[in-house]
Design a protein around this nucleic acid. Structure first.
Lengths: 247, 247
DNA sequence: CGATAGTTTGACACAGCTCAATAGGCGTGG
DNA sequence: CCACGCCTATTGAGCTGTGTCAAACTATCG
């Protein structure tokens, strides 16, 4: 869907020569593209293509050579690592309008999968690198996002290393509520959202088993902290109660 | 010791106007200062001071306002986070010539402590920011180091979430061997080093208890994988065997 | 309506935690 | 030089939270 091609760029449009592809794009505001001048957007858009993939689609293989980077326009992407014997750990979730890729390395050390339906705007590594050399502001944004991800990763290390199963699940629900639910931003007390991950995925994110995750969720439900419909839709009545349980 | 002042800068020295303070400094080669031109070094050196602190010294408090950044010249610094009830997790170890600080934020969300004797070269936040605006190359190095730290953090998430106690301890020994032992770089089979952390610290790094760490170490010793002297000095006879045990 | 994938629930086992006692290393002061 | 105290590390015994294995349940979809 919306398989726009890089070369469908109209310079004669009102908005100061911004490629049509980019006009309605969220990444142009909060994402890294916000750092770019119209001409640089045009430059980048030459190698750009959008695509939409279904849940479960593998986007990047662990240890694969990566030639294209992308912005996430919607959906949730999971980043994971695997031990030789198959044990898996999700090391990060990415939401729109995050940038997906590892500058300065051509091999990925992570696997990336679509957790939900995901739309992406991808562009070639070389195009990004070219623009990066010209734009101090782009580098700055990349640095900021990377620092943010490092903060998140370290927060999660505390969760993985020191929290109980119950606290882990509460922390996870909070993370999702804060990143997905459009309402919880306004009304700070309640939140309602679809879980983007299966129980198995949640377990891999929390360093638990799927059974333990399920038990903790039903415990929260029976205690009235959350409500669950169809196993996937969660309503949190009192976010503060969840915060208290997250440690 | 070596409490050199920022203003002891001699521009008439041979080496192209590089501050004396920086002449023998490792950070000028492998650290972020390597990105700077002599004039920029001079600029930064104006607010620079070196100091040496003992093991256990707190360098940065969690949630404190930070006005100075630093390069680590020698020693090991631990970065940690704490839960309200006191549970602690070490979220990273930093070695020379790492940069210590969080650009774009004036509050630290991490606590930093000297694990060993540490020497630091510190400079004001504002001075670094000024130089950063002028040096694309400095930003690039900062981005590179941050990406590296993010990779490390994610590797460790796999360790925390999915490895057994035994694998965790083996992973830790490998991490230290690779970062501290000067010899293991040449001779890939053996390594010998002082542990920079107490058993309690190691436990906080691995998400275990100090007793479990101790038991795993004695297990490795009795199996002949390592040798321990004075509880602190470790010799690894066959690094490959350790790698195998790290998962 | 059967098949498939995801989820819940139960019973039991065990890795790692807790609590407690002992041992070693090292500096200080008699 | 030994004795003492302090800190860190080791070792032991028992407990418990979470993992394992297995079965049943639910939702979705051709």
């Amino acid at each position: 869907m919306a398989s726009a091609l890089g070369n469908c760029v109209r310079r004669d449009i009102h908005s100061d020569g911004i490629p049509v592809l980019c006009l309605a794009c969220e990444a142009r505001h909060k994402g890294i593209c916000g750092a770019l001048q119209p001409e640089q957007l045009v430059q980048l858009a030459k190698s750009t293509s959008k695509r939409k993939v279904g849940p479960g689609t593998q986007l990047v293989d662990e240890e694969a050579v990566v030639e294209r980077y992308a912005n996430i326009l919607s959906g949730v992407v999971k980043l994971s690592k695997t031990l030789p014997d198959g044990r898996q750990q999700i090391v990060g979730l990415q939401f729109a309008p995050d940038f997906l890729g590892r500058p300065f390395e051509n091999e990925s050390r992570l696997r990336a999968d679509a957790a939900t339906t995901v739309s992406l705007c991808s562009f070639s590594r070389s195009a990004l690198e070219r623009v990066m050399n010209e734009s101090q502001e782009l580098q700055r944004r990349l640095l900021k996002q990377t620092l943010k991800q490092l903060d998140d990763a370290r927060d999660w290390m505390l969760t993985l290393g020191r929290k109980t199963a119950s606290e882990k699940v509460a922390s996870f629900l909070l993370l999702i509520a804060r990143n997905i639910d459009p309402y919880s931003a306004h009304d700070r007390k309640t939140a309602s959202f679809d879980l983007p991950l299966t129980r198995g995925d949640i377990a891999d994110f929390l360093g638990l088993t799927l059974e333990t995750v399920s038990r903790q969720l039903t415990k929260f439900r029976s205690e009235g902290v959350i409500q669950i419909e169809n196993a996937r839709h969660v309503t949190v009545h009192d976010l503060d109660r969840l915060v208290a349980r997250a440690g």
